[in-house]
Design a protein around this nucleic acid. Structure first.
Lengths: 219, 219
DNA sequence: GTCTATAGATGGATAGAC
DNA sequence: GTCTATCCATCTATAGAC
């Protein structure tokens, strides 16, 4: 009679996945906009229109949810960068010039930053995790540098005349350029420049960044 | 120091000033090392070895304490930068070259970053306030750009051939280079490079940053 | 002025009903 | 599985004793 609850109906499973996805999306958005510590589990579940216990049920804890968002987005970003670096290697028989290496480093986060891109918020989340991340995230950032090593090696090969130390520092400067692309900094620049900077034009911004960084590497 | 000219009970006044200074120093240090939201009033008063109520008595609230540290350190930094820019102007009859303008922008925060400098922690506090600051601080950062305007104007005058928009973006890139000089990023770079980068040598780092940024501006 | 004790508010996590 | 009610820890801020 009332056996319909014994077997998991497909609707339930879909509803479960939908709930988890809603929590994930709401959390990423709120964390990216307001900071990790300024967003409570209650804020997330309210935004996602699910019940309060959903975060702990689906992810274990608030920190585990944070970490899962972090892992997914960084691995996606690293994959895109690695693919572009691979393509640059293929185009140039394993010896791409500095500009194309930097292009593989800059393009993915800038493509995500496009106002038309649904991942626009994800890159803000990633940038924020660099300064506000939990101990888990900081440990990953600290130890998981294999992805960056490939870029460092490529740059060293492209500029064998430079001391390796110099190349590492210049890579550090380039990363700083990327990490400064936060909403708040864009707004500040917009204000400073009297409104003539248009951060929505990510294609133009990419060219600007490449011009600046490539010249810096050639010094 | 200049407050000692008021004639009141010396011991009490000194003790009061000492307590306030101890709270200020402990707060700045803990905030810089662990982040604003991760440090409680209890942590601060314990570190300063004063009673729990001291923060509210001397500063009004935790946020007001944060804001007071922020105001003092940023005004000190801005003053040093303005003085160096002024000196560069005097050396070059009001038309300093790009490198000397950038030198006035980079030198103060790097001088503070020296391991031998007692303000080493202050610059970490300032950098952190850019991403974790309260609404008060963000409003100041957003609206108080008069200090940066002088640098932007000087750069525009030094490169009149460039579109103004380009100069603003390149200034933004330079600020990103500075803001990326966090302890955590230094550690990561140290790890990535196999230990060959020495961030303690701030004089060398300043030269590296100037070489990179100047070349970027000449593109 | 200093300090203890506590109010008042919030947040993460969970038990238990359904 | 979902959701409500609640526990418990923690924090800021403050009242009141001294």
């Amino acid at each position: 009679m009332t056996d319909s609850q014994i077997h998991d109906p497909p609707e339930t499973e879909e509803a479960q996945a939908a709930t988890k996805a809603a929590v994930f999306a709401a959390a990423e958005r709120l964390f990216a906009l307001h900071g990790f510590q300024n967003v409570s589990v209650r804020d997330i579940t309210a935004e996602a229109r699910v019940n309060l216990a959903s975060v702990n049920y689906h992810f274990g804890s608030k920190d585990a949810l944070l970490f899962e968002i972090f892992k997914r987005r960084t691995s996606e970003l690293n994959r895109e960068r690695a693919r572009m670096l691979h393509e640059a290697n293929e185009r140039h028989a394993g010896q791409p010039p500095v500009r194309e290496i930097l292009e593989a480093l800059f393009t993915p986060p800038l493509r995500w930053s496009d106002p038309a891109n649904e991942r626009r918020i994800s890159i803000q989340f990633i940038i924020r995790s660099r300064s506000e991340g939990t101990a888990d995230m900081r440990e990953v950032l600290q130890n998981d540098v294999s992805h960056l090593e490939r870029f460092a090696d490529a740059l060293i090969a492209a500029r064998p005349d430079l001391p390796r130390e110099t190349v590492y520092w210049r890579l550090h400067f380039c990363l700083g350029m990327i990490h400064n692309n936060r909403f708040a900094e864009f707004d500040r620049l917009h204000h400073l420049s009297g409104g003539i900077t248009r951060e929505g034009d990510v294609k133009a911004l990419l060219t600007r960044m490449l011009d600046f960084a490539e010249a810096g590497f050639m010094a």
